[in-house]
């Protein structure tokens, strides 16, 4: 093994131990020495994992790999455990078996025979593990896909079609009293007539051209192509605004992590 990685690992281990010792001394009054040591360890470990994940910004390294594998392993086990206790134990067993309810110490609700359908489908899915019965898993998949499509069809039709159209039917001319009045009372105020007219016009035009962009049955040439290009410009402008907005949200996440490192761990800023 090369010297470099050994020195870095030793240095990180040393920093870890120093941090652990220091943070163990700063436990709240009244807590036992065991609690203080545990508190110091978990705080240091959280800071170590944060820095290990952030080290990926430099390049892939053993610390990142450690944090990655730990995260994946713990989360996979967590989700499996959560699924078992919240789905099977909390919801299924109290409805299909009094014995299992008593075994897992949950209150038995009543026998509801339609609750046998999900475990049967689950068993069918697991048949995939059987070399001969693998085809049975397709029944469960087909049920899931078919049910989803059926349930979503009316919902999406209402929210993504009917309501979108009714919301976009806007009067192009707002508070219209003729051209004379329009020019006499011309204003660039956000709530003014001119801005309202431009806004409504852009909404209607943008939606129409956006739909044209997503029209697949006709080649986008000529006037149709021009409308389609305008549609994609509208989309790109929207994406730009959305990009900026979301990046601001991500910055707040970074601030949260930095606050943890600088305040909770190092204590060099006040919270």
């Amino acid at each position: 093994m090369r010297k470099g990685p050994i020195i870095i690992t030793a240095a990180v281990a040393l920093f870890f131990v120093i941090s652990w010792i220091i943070k163990s001394g700063g436990a709240p009054e009244g807590s036992s020495s065991y609690d203080a040591i545990a508190e110091g360890f978990w705080l240091t470990f959280a800071a170590f994992l944060t820095l290990a994940i952030l080290s990926f910004l430099y390049k892939d390294n053993p610390f990142y790999k450690f944090a990655e594998h730990l995260y994946v392993g713990v989360s996979a086990a967590y989700w499996m455990s959560l699924g078992f206790w919240t789905t099977l134990v909390a919801n299924l067993f109290p409805r299909i078996s009094m014995t299992l309810s008593e075994w897992f110490q949950v209150e038995f609700i009543s026998y509801q025979y339609h609750f046998w359908v999900p475990p049967i489908l689950g068993v069918l899915l697991l048949m995939r593990l059987s070399p001969k019965g693998g085809w049975l898993s397709r029944w469960a998949l087909a049920f899931i896909v078919g049910t989803t499509a059926g349930l979503n069809l009316p919902r999406f039709l209402r929210s993504d079609f009917i309501e979108q159209i009714s919301s976009t039917m806007l009067p192009i001319l707002v508070n219209w009293q003729g051209f004379g009045d329009f020019f006499t009372n011309f204003s660039l105020s956000a709530s003014g007539q001119f801005v309202s007219i431009v806004s409504n016009f852009l909404v209607v035009l943008g939606v129409l051209c956006g739909i044209i962009y997503f029209f697949f049955s006709k080649e986008h040439k000529g006037a149709f192509g021009a409308a389609s290009r305008f549609g994609i410009w509208v989309l790109m402008v929207t994406f730009g605004a959305s990009f900026g907005y979301t990046v601001m949200g991500r910055i707040s996440l970074l601030v949260g992590r930095l606050t943890f490192l600088l305040d909770d761990w190092l204590g060099i800023i006040s919270g």
């Binding site: 994940i53 990142y64 790999k65 944090a67 990655e68 995260y71 994946v72 996979a76 989700w79």
Partner: peptide
């Protein structure tokens, strides 16, 4: 990999 969103991302990045 895992159901956990960022656990999955960490693994895919790796």
């Amino acid at each position: 990999v895992t159901d956990e969103q960022f656990g999955y991302v960490a693994a895919v990045n790796g």
